[in-house]
Design a binder for these strands. Structure first.
Lengths: 194, 194
DNA sequence: CGGTACACGTACCAGTTGGTACAGGAGCGG
DNA sequence: CCGCTCCTGTACCAACTGGTACGTGTACCG
């Protein structure tokens, strides 16, 4: 992996932004922290917005990479898969990235330029993956999609909680309650009028 | 309600910010939109940060007001309460406020000045309320707290989904799946090792 | 009437912002 | 040696930022 000047710079930019946030971002301070000049950021990314776009893409790239490393053995029970996912995301070591993710999410729903690309795959790519996996178990796509949607919401909602309160034990307990309830069997939507 | 000049101004500020977001906020543009001068905003709120603080407080005030108007008759089943809450929050008419809420949330977890106050009651005040309600039904506080935490996460997570995808039907279905599963009986944490 | 507290606008300030013009300098193929 | 491409820094710009100084109008109270 030769990386390339630009890619290596981008990686450092993302790491730095994960620590400091993107709201009060200034090209000059960012460049100074990175030991270069703001001119370089403009040179490599064209503009501040261009840099933001690349940051968002890099975040997505890393999320996909993390996703790919999750245990998706069809033999694994869905409840265990969600437990494993939670364990990974709730780790304090990745909190800076979670924070950045939610900050960008908040900006994206407001339609700020450069960030909106984040919204495109932010839900559906996860649902699609789950539908595909469930199909191997013979679960109908509609059901799998709804359940995945719920599971994703639980994880993201609890992450929001965790980042605000820092209450790892409380959020762990809530996730476990969900997982156990899920194991007990969630109803299929078609049985309740959907 | 005589309102008062400052309160009336704050109300208009919040409405305006809900439409435009708080990220690219400038006192001058905001004032111009409101038909006044940025000097007035400083005069009434002391500084930009002071104004932000008041905006956050106003958001909390409105949330508490909305919360108070929800049907909390102890006779209402928890699953119906969460359905009612979802119906209220998923209404497109309040999307601008949801967007603002999540944008501020994202800034707050990054520790930006003026916004962090949002985090204090953002989870616990809801949990406390639920614990109190559950007590009237004889539900133990620990269980009620965990279940409330999960329900809150589901709603917030699905709201994030809804704001990103606009898929009302999909998120409705996911919430319904959760509500039905909840009616079927969630396990108590003590039974699973907590 | 006078005065005093509040509400408001204009003009201005210093600092910072993103972006640009320009000048190299390092490496390399010819 | 030249020339060329990639990379980097300095100096600068106009625009905009939050905040301040100062003056004005207005309403209420004595």
């Amino acid at each position: 992996m030769p990386a390339g000047v630009r890619e290596e710079l981008l990686s450092r930019v993302v790491d730095r932004i994960a620590e400091q946030g993107v709201g009060a971002l200034s090209l000059r301070r960012l460049a100074a922290d990175l030991g270069t000049s703001h001119r370089m950021l403009i040179y490599h990314f064209g503009s501040k917005e261009g840099l933001l776009v690349e940051v968002v893409r890099e975040i997505e790239r890393r999320q996909r990479a993390a996703l790919a490393s999750v245990d998706f053995d069809p033999a694994t029970a869905p409840a265990d898969a969600i437990r494993s996912m939670w364990r990974r995301l709730a780790d304090p070591a990745v909190w800076p990235y979670e924070r950045l993710f939610f900050e960008l999410y908040g900006q994206a729903v407001q339609g700020y330029p450069g960030t909106t690309a984040l919204l495109e795959g932010v839900v559906d790519s996860w649902l699609d993956l789950n539908v595909e996996l469930a199909a191997r178990r013979g679960v109908p796509a509609e059901v799998a999609r709804t359940h995945a949607r719920l599971g994703l919401a639980v994880i993201r909602g609890l992450l929001l909680d965790l980042l605000a309160t820092g209450d790892r034990a409380g959020t762990d307990a809530a996730l476990e309650a969900f997982a156990v309830g899920y194991e007990a069997g969630l109803p299929v939507p078609s049985a309740v009028g959907y």
